[in-house]
Design a binder for these strands. Structure first.
Lengths: 211, 211
DNA sequence: GCAAGATCTGACGAACCGTCAGATAATTTG
DNA sequence: CAAATTATCTGACGGTTCGTCAGATCTTGC
């Protein structure tokens, strides 16, 4: 993308050697770990640094602030999405369609189970208008939305009726996937995991294929 | 609910007189205003206090911290929800159903336009496991979910097929409503407001009535 | 083994937090 | 109406976190 090879750099733009890369990685890992157990609000830079035996100054050499580190973690999470896209390809008829729909739902839940704390912060920041996070979320969603729209067009669901816009429908489906994946653990006191997956998959299947 | 009349009190439990009630209200209003323009991350207690010509100490007399004030604002937002419930009552057949579905979507968007910053924080805190916010969100959602489930039962959508669980479907629908309402302004660069409303309403109608 | 460059440290000033003892304003009492 | 009592507010203060930077420490190439 950029003119030079995109080596990972510190805040002043200096490309990193191996030692620095390791420190940076461990700082990111520690950020993620502390985020998982405490949430953003109780996350202190000093704790992250201490967790990897570094001083606060080292953290600030690589990241402008905690949010900046979360931004990088969110970018890494984006890299795990491409396998999802293949699920939308091929036939979505009959039993195969049902299985594919379910696989999509499963994928999202697993993805959010792994990255929930980071994705939540990403979404909040994006919703609050932070451009960097908006772009990241856009990059994550766009291919998925496009795959859904393509499927609707292939299957004829797109011309269902004049009220129905495939782009909007794709947004609605991703809303279901995101939101339910985000809190499925909480609601599973009242609704079984099975039901949640089956029903979401059912709605997804109907909407994307027009039945 | 409590034994005594639930007058509004300060943190030490002392019921408030008129002067104090006014200050408290103005502090809440200022919190909301600053939240709208800056987001949670840049919200300083000192700024809230200054905005109403008070000292920081006054804020802390009424609220444990900024989050506590947001909690009260979220509770106030809950009070605006009952009118929504009436939309789920009565017939959802034919044109009437389509209008009702659309009214529900409109209601949600207007609601989020008014309270978005607060609802976003509520959702983040609830997702991160904060009990107080979880309870508030539960109190907001439960009646809506119940109204949806009742409608599905009345309309026969509930027995659609064995994959389909009305409780899970209600969750999925509220996920669409929440999420799209949360960022409709952002996506309306790509998808028109009309399309968004029509399509969400269409999906809602189909799901709640089984077509 | 030493110079040059890379990386890290930890102390520091600034900013913000939340508290509290006392000041000020309102209300009641006589 | 003035003193006494109660309600409310203030702002200075100790404690904590932030983010910076000059210098210390490690690594590499020769």
């Amino acid at each position: 993308m950029g003119g030079k090879a995109d080596r990972i750099a510190d805040l002043s733009g200096r490309p990193l050697g191996v030692r620095a890369l390791q420190k940076r990685r461990r700082l990111l890992d520690a950020t993620r770990a502390l985020l998982d157990e405490r949430g953003l609000r109780e996350l202190r830079v000093a704790d992250i640094a201490r967790a990897v035996g570094a001083s606060p100054g080292t953290f600030y050499q690589y990241f402008a602030d905690v949010e900046d580190a979360v931004l990088h973690l969110a970018a890494e999470a984006n890299a795990e999405l491409p396998p999802l896209l293949t699920l939308f390809e091929g036939s979505w008829r009959g039993r195969e369609g049902r299985d594919r729909a379910r696989a999509v739902v499963d994928f999202f839940m697993a993805y959010w189970d792994r990255h929930g704390p980071i994705l939540r912060i990403r979404n909040l920041a994006a919703d609050e208008g932070d451009m960097r996070f908006m772009e990241l979320r856009g990059a994550a969603m766009m291919p998925i939305l496009a795959a859904m729209v393509a499927l609707m067009q292939r299957s004829g669901a797109a011309e269902r009726n004049p009220e129905f816009d495939p782009d909007a429908a794709a947004l609605a489906m991703s809303a279901i996937l995101d939101r339910l994946a985000a809190y499925h653990r909480v609601v599973e006191n009242d609704v079984s995991h099975e039901s949640l997956v089956n029903t979401s998959a059912d709605i997804l299947l109907r909407t994307l294929t027009g039945r």
